[in-house]
Design a protein around this nucleic acid. Structure first.
Lengths: 340, 340
DNA sequence: CTGTTAGCGCTTTCAT
DNA sequence: ATGAAAGCGCTAACAG
């Protein structure tokens, strides 16, 4: 049962006493220091096990100046981005080596400040700040006494270190895939123009089309990040430009709507028209009919790199400044390539 | 920029020196103890602010025996359940008062053990264990020295304290809604029979049907938790039982598939047939056409209660044992009720 | 190889 | 009202 321990937690002193040595020796024995006789170490280890001794990380941290903890401060309410990033960070840190405080600021600057203070008070060794869009976010400033890496949303200050998906590259990658599939009349439906993600992907789309000697069919269609918009835009598109053979959508949600409407209007996917999205949100991409080709932002990789940077900075290495872009990964499914 | 502090962090000693008092007095002043002259307190507070002093929570925790941290140990890879639970917990704890370590065991018992040891070593005040299904999970056993609450997945040991969605009640609630909408020929498509969530919801469905003097149309259709199954099952259903006027689906994903196929077969939703799901996963429910009625499991509430229990246990209160069920909440949308 | 000592930053008696 | 001192659990220097 979940009981509040009435007895004091077992300490190194208890172990030392049981093993019949001093705490110092016990400490050395358990930490693999080499000035300990094998038989002594043996005794200490056994004593520790018998008492199920678990060293107090607070005491250790207090002394070492390092706590082995990292703060992940997010505003991503759904956890769509932060969970893969957390997993990547855990990978990089090694499970159990480093523990991660996850704080959700819910897009509220005040709450963010609270959490920030708390994390610094707990002497985290580093911070990873996860935004919910790829638009630059306000910097925490230069006075944070630990390494900070901004993930997903870059910092708006050039001296900070940020890591964000390469949406322009992803846009290019998408078009290159469609072109490789033989598509030449490509339209682009996307989300809100206010989002850098939408604009950047669109820019990449244009680049790649130009490079392929093609032109976008119609204008980039900006509106909301929703299935509804995907449906509505697709209806308009197929009406005005019946010749299109590919609809590139700015998100998987939009793509789901496009797929839906294409079917409703009697177009076969991918035979008549290819459809693809961005984000590779599995619940959407692998459940549609056909399954949806998408660009995965490699967030787990992003999280891993962010964590490695924090570590590197801790070790005194220079991790530089500015924003680094993480490549996306094309995930091909049935909505752009006919089933074999 | 994110720099590793070259200078030592500012300590209470620094503050005391600047204020011209002893550390003891500084401590009292900052912690609102009442044996301090107002003018002295003033000076100390100012000094602390000037130095942007942030008390070392490790040192404090070492002394107090409480750390103000809680471990959230999950195996919910997508974060679908754990994020609302985390938010609920943060609500209950108060942002900044308590910090939450989030660890993802990824369904791996070894990794779970690693994380558990790490968390206990960091002297968390309590643990919330979040499973990814509502089936009972192995207990961590009686020897955890801090309060443990199992959330979402209950523990398989009766002496543990668990909190899980009331799926039976949710099944009942769903049927009651459909009946209230005038539906009488109701079918039930759901996920894998191996999942307690599927079986429990189905049991509730049967209860409520019986109570209403109705019978399920056909058998409960168990298979996978996917849109594909929703589509396939719906096709079979409409073929074999064209008279049905409601399809209750075991998840929103299945419901999306059902919606899709109902349309494809020329049935109007909700006029000819009502469709509803469970989970209220917004990306699915609010983007479909029509939007999907669903039962929300109130996970944020669940997280809040779990956190409150941990706290209560810490304060020495008896939080009892066994599993408590959290009521779901009906969210009515257009798939069961025609738009006004 | 082992033990003694000091001290990480803080709170809390207990004197003054 | 203030300060000196002890100690939370641990590790690192230094002595022996």
């Amino acid at each position: 049962m979940a009981r509040t321990d009435p007895a004091r937690a077992v300490t190194l002193t208890d172990v030392a006493r049981l093993a019949g040595v001093s705490v110092a020796t016990a400490s050395k024995a358990l930490n693999g220091r080499d000035q300990v006789k094998d038989s002594t170490r043996q005794r200490v280890v056994e004593a520790a096990e018998r008492l199920s001794f678990s060293p107090n990380a607070l005491a250790r941290g207090l002394l070492a100046g390092r706590t082995g903890t990292v703060g992940l401060l997010t505003s991503d309410l759904e956890g769509r981005f932060v969970i893969p990033i957390l997993m990547g960070a855990e990978d990089a840190f090694g499970a159990g080596q480093v523990s991660v405080f996850l704080c959700d600021a819910r897009g509220d600057a005040i709450r963010e400040q609270y959490h920030l203070r708390a994390l610094l008070g707990r002497r985290v060794d580093g911070l990873i700040i996860v935004g919910r869009q790829t638009d630059p976010r306000p910097s925490l400033g230069p006075d944070i006494p630990v390494p900070v890496v901004y993930a997903y949303a870059p910092s708006d200050h050039p001296d900070d270190r940020s890591l964000t998906p390469d949406n322009t590259g992803a846009g290019r990658m998408a078009v290159e895939h469609l072109v490789a599939c033989g598509r030449t009349r490509i339209a682009h439906i996307t989300g809100e123009h206010a989002y850098a993600a939408a604009r950047d992907r669109a820019a990449g789309v244009r680049d790649a089309l130009t490079a392929a000697g093609l032109e976008l069919v119609g204008d980039v269609m900006y509106s909301e990040w929703s299935e509804r918009w995907g449906r509505d835009a697709t209806a308009m598109l197929l009406e005005q430009h019946p010749e299109i053979d590919a609809i590139l959508c700015g998100s998987d949600q939009i793509a789901r709507g496009a797929l839906d409407m294409a079917h409703a209007l009697g177009r076969s996917v991918p035979d008549d028209v290819a459809v693809m999205g961005f984000d590779n949100w599995e619940v959407l991409t692998t459940n549609s009919r056909p399954e949806l080709t998408s660009i995965d932002a490699n967030l787990q990789q992003l999280g891993r790199t962010a964590a490695q940077w924090v570590f590197a900075a801790l070790d005194g290495k220079d991790i530089g400044t500015g924003t680094q872009f993480v490549d996306g990964r094309l995930v091909i499914r049935g909505s752009t390539v006919a089933r074999r």
